[in-house]
Structures are given as C-alpha cells and as structure tokens.
C-alpha cells in the first residue's frame, strides 16, 4: 500500500458519473437512453456510498448500496414494461411526441 487513493478521488469519480447521467437525462430524447442514464446516476451514488463505507470502517454503506441495486432492478423492470406498452400504443419512443398522460 504505497500509494493510497484518497477518499476525495472516489467522491469526484461518483460526482462525475452522476453529472454525466444527469446531462444524459436532460439532453437525450430516446426513452431507453434516459432509463440508461438513470441507471448511471444510481451507480454513481453507489460508488459514493461504498467509498464512505470504507472511510467509516463499517458495512452500512455497502448494505445500502445493495438495496439501491435491488431498487434499480425493480425500476428497470417496471420502466421497461412501461416502455413496451408505450411503444405498442404510440409506435414511438421519442419523448418529445409522448406528451399526453392519456389518449
């Protein structure tokens, strides 16, 4: 362990990935890519939590990350089911054209 990696490097990495995900959500207009960007943001939060867990010396952050992964799986399943229903009824995934709650 000659060259330790400081905690702040991990926090910066997590922040960078989170911002990339947020910009993806704001700029892209394909519904699937937006879902992927959300997964990216959840992953960035996981990095931050695990880094803090390492700093604190206990496992709470890692357990919380596991719960986040489970919630991400649930979100992906429901989100993709919604995408399929949306595509079958509207024939498009461009969220510029999906602007009504009911049709």
């Amino acid at each position: 362990m000659s060259a330790e990696v400081p905690l702040s490097y991990y926090l910066i990495l997590g922040a960078l990935l989170f911002i990339i995900g947020a910009v993806g959500v704001l700029t892209r207009r394909h519904a699937l890519v937006i879902l992927m960007s959300i997964e990216l943001m959840l992953n960035a939060v996981n990095i931050t939590l695990v880094a803090f867990s390492r700093m604190q010396g206990n496992l709470t952050g890692q357990v919380f990350s596991l719960f986040i992964i489970a919630v991400a799986a649930a979100e992906a399943a429901v989100g993709l089911a919604i995408v399929i229903v949306l595509f079958n009824s509207r024939e498009t995934l461009n969220i510029d054209e999906i602007n009504l709650m009911k049709w």
């Binding site: 362990m1 990696v5 905690l7 702040s8 926090l11 922040a15 911002i19 390492r54 700093m55 206990n58």
Partner: peptide, 24 residues
Amino acid sequence: LGLEVAYILYGTMAAPASLPAAAP
C-alpha cells in the same frame, strides 16, 4: 450541477485525505 458538486467536494478536501488502510 457540476459547479455545485465541485463546491461541496471542495469542502470535503479538508477532511482526512486517505482511507484507513485496514479493510473494514
């Protein structure tokens, strides 16, 4: 958003820089 996060992270730089060497 990046600037805000950078501002917050700048505050954490003062915190102990390196992680504890022992695994948790």
